Amino acid sequence: MARGAKIYEGKAKILYEGPEPGTIIQFFKDDATAFNAEKKDVIDGKGVLNNRFCEHIMTGLNALGLPTHFIRRLNAREQLCHKVEIVPLEVIIRNVAAGSMAKRLGLEEGYQLSRPLVEFSFKEDSLGDPLVAEEHIEVMQWATRHELDAMIDMAFRVNDYLSGMMHGIGIKLVDFKIEFGRQFDEDGNMTLLLADEISPDSCRLWDIETGRKLDKDVFRRDLGNLTDAYSEVARRLNILPKGGSKTGPKLVK
């Protein structure tokens, strides 16, 4: 499927105009970044795997009635999506203390929270995506109270779905981040959609038995081969692309 002009290039994806009005093509790159892009590398096959993860998860969420921007996967690295206006927030759900939360609050990584916790960060790389309160969001008009309530509700539903999916393959869902976008129809009516991606790039995933990290912390903390970790999750979900191996899928031109 022919793609149109480039709209945006981020750290892990490129967005192009889609073949029909109101659509985009999302291309998954092999680039890996951490610490606000201070650490960078190219990981062979990462984009192919993340495209498959995203397809698998978004398809399941759509089937449950949670509206997402995902329409269908086009090829190894591209998917067709609804065009949305991204809400400038990251919505973070934490089930276990890890990463920045553990450091910020002086907790030992792995501390089980009494219930899932929702946090928000303002999407601005130059500021390090700072945490913000719901009051900040309303005062700065990044989202309305109604949109905030809808995002929180959907985030907890995503958490229920992902937690069950991962537990079924022996993986603990520690935390994850998601983003939302506004889709407008011809009459100006707005629908809030889950957007961007859900993959091991945006989740913390620990093996239940061993505690082995199967997410981007492998890259952040130099814990081994990132493609091996992602491939293990894909293997357990039975979505490893044809030709997948320990060396990872090859670049699709």
Rank of each mutant, 00 (worst) to 15 (best):
G60T: 08
L173A: 01
K6S: 09
R220S: 02
D153Y: 00
E186F: 03
Q183G: 12
L173S: 00
Y161I: 06
P21Q: 05
I198W: 00
K242E: 14
E138R: 12
P241L: 15
M154P: 04
F176R: 00
R145K: 13
F156W: 04
F156H: 11
D187Y: 12
L223R: 06
I208R: 00
F122R: 04
L107W: 15
K83F: 05
I169Q: 12
T227N: 14
L61C: 06
H167S: 14
L193G: 11
M140W: 14
G181L: 01
N50Q: 12
V174I: 11
I152E: 12
V132M: 02
L214Q: 12
K213Y: 07
K242V: 11
A97G: 01
F28I: 10
T247E: 15
D222A: 13
A155L: 02
D44W: 08
V84T: 15
H82G: 15
M101I: 01
N75Y: 08
I57W: 04
G10F: 00
P200M: 03
N62K: 07
R72L: 10
Y161Q: 12
L251D: 06
L240A: 15
L113S: 05
M101T: 03
I93L: 07
L194K: 03
F176H: 01
L127A: 04
F219D: 04
E109F: 08
D175G: 00
Y8H: 06
W142L: 13
R115Y: 02
Y161S: 12
P21F: 02
S100A: 07
L127G: 00
E9A: 11
C81I: 07
G10N: 05
C54F: 09
E232M: 13
I93Y: 03
I7C: 04
G60R: 05
D187V: 10
N51F: 07
D125W: 00
F27D: 12
E186M: 08
L89T: 13
K40T: 15
M58K: 06
R52M: 14
K172W: 13
Q79M: 11
K250M: 04
R52L: 14
K242C: 10
E138V: 13
P249Y: 11
G168H: 14
T247S: 15
M1G: 09
D187G: 14
A34R: 08
L49V: 13
R77P: 03
A63F: 06
D31P: 01
E232G: 05
I71D: 09
M58D: 07
P21N: 05
A150F: 01
D125Y: 03
K253W: 05
V48F: 10
R115W: 02
K253S: 12
E134P: 06
L162T: 10
G60A: 04
Q183H: 11
L223S: 10
N62H: 06
G18W: 01
A155N: 02
S100E: 07
C203Y: 00
I171N: 14
N75L: 08
E90N: 07
G168F: 13
I239D: 11
R212E: 15
Q79V: 09
D41N: 07
D160G: 04
E124F: 07
F219E: 08
P67A: 04
